[in-house]
Nucleic acid binder design. Structure first.
Length: 250
DNA sequence: GTTGAGCGTT
């Protein structure tokens, strides 16, 4: 949905796309237009929105007609305080169709030659590096969607989870036998919190474990450099978190 | 009603 393109996005082949980051979730294209239009001819402004909620994702795309104007806008508007937030303006790296963009301009029309000689065996010389990079990237992505999910989704999930517990085949007898403490929210609360304390180490350990279980000797532990994580493992005793079992020492 | 690394069509 472009501000100018009612019938779709205008041709960006002759335009320079700028990526505006760090804008407020309330900032709209109309708010950015006067700011960017002052430094050049703005062809179009597009702000990706969440298809579920419809809210802005916190960044926008501004298309300029000329590169010099776009560059000027980047230099001028980058770091500009908008709506109480400092925005970040930079040239877009990828296009709407995943085209390669250099300086906001598309240098590659369509990388469809990807299917060419596509070996299913990706030559990964540096598996460790690749793994690390992938982990890091995934971590960032996850962190991003976690922000608002924690507010609504997670909350709903928690409620749903609770209801579901009741719907389970748990009989009142078991409930009494096992004791309420086991299902008590106070008890489950720290438990969940502990589970959420997933560290990158956990991902690495699980990753390699499930990635190539037979790759290494199952009966022998990897003698290579021991992971310094096991000792740092925060999960050792849930009692530690228990308020009643708190160490009275001091 | 809130949050904050990133790359896009209604």
């Amino acid at each position: 949905m472009s501000r100018f393109g009612r019938s779709g996005p205008p041709p960006i082949r002759d335009t320079y796309s700028l990526l505006v980051l760090n804008i407020t979730f309330r900032t709209t294209a109309d708010d950015l237009f006067p700011l960017f239009d002052k430094y050049g001819e703005v062809v179009d402004i597009y702000i990706p929105r969440d298809r579920r909620t419809g809210d802005s994702r916190g960044f926008a795309f501004v298309r300029y007609k000329y590169e010099d104007e776009a560059q000027k806008a980047v230099d001028r508007l980058d770091g500009k305080l908008v709506d109480g937030r400092e925005i970040m303006v930079q040239f877009a790296k990828y296009g709407p169709n995943a085209e390669r963009i250099n300086k906001g301009r598309i240098v590659e029309p369509v990388p469809r030659s990807r299917g060419r000689s596509r070996s299913r065996s990706p030559r990964r010389r540096y598996r460790d590096d690749y793994r690390d990079d992938y982990r890091d990237r995934d971590y960032r992505r996850r962190s991003r969607s976690r922000s608002r999910d924690r507010y609504t989704r997670d909350r709903y999930r928690e409620r749903d989870y609770r209801r579901r517990s009741r719907s389970r085949s748990y009989s009142p007898d078991d409930y009494k036998k096992h004791g309420r403490d086991s299902l008590s929210p106070a008890r489950r609360s720290p438990s969940r919190s502990r589970s959420r304390s997933y560290s990158p180490d956990d991902y690495k350990r699980r990753g390699r474990d499930s990635a190539s279980p037979a790759s290494r000797s199952p009966s022998r532990s990897p003698p290579r450099k021991a992971s310094p994580s096991p000792e740092k493992s925060p999960v050792r005793r849930n009692d530690d978190r228990s308020p009643r079992s708190r160490s009275p020492s001091t």
